[in-house]
Amino acid sequence: MTDSHEDVSDLLPLREPTFLILLSLAEGQKHGYAIIKDVAEMSRDRVTLSTGTLYEALARLLDQLLIERVEEPDEMGSHPGRPRKAYRLTLRGQRAVQAEVNRLQNLIAAAQQRLGLERQGSGD
């Protein structure tokens, strides 16, 4: 897909719920209910998404071509046999997650370096 080669830097920084949704989808395709549970688990219940927030974010991510919708058979749910909509990362979405992770790592590295220097400075 040509879009996946586009620069994703204009999408950064990602909002925390958006980042967590993308992270949740990084390990494989999921449906809405699984995403809500996974995001809550990853954030240790600090970020609990409502369905409105989740689907607003999913709609935006679909528009930005960061995720795509797929259908999976619902064997365990309330309508066995009926295909259920799930979401998965696109290549562009993977690039966006990676770019956000790099950005956060750089930020943390800078903060650690500065704090380390400060500690050294205060120790002198």
Partner: peptide, 21 residues
């Protein structure tokens, strides 16, 4: 309360997820 286009696309899914929750 959501826009019509949004509802057409996501309403059934949202109801299903809320039902599960």
């Amino acid at each position: 309360a959501f826009p019509q286009g949004f509802r057409a696309e996501f309403e059934s899914e949202m109801l299903e997820v809320f039902d599960s929750l």
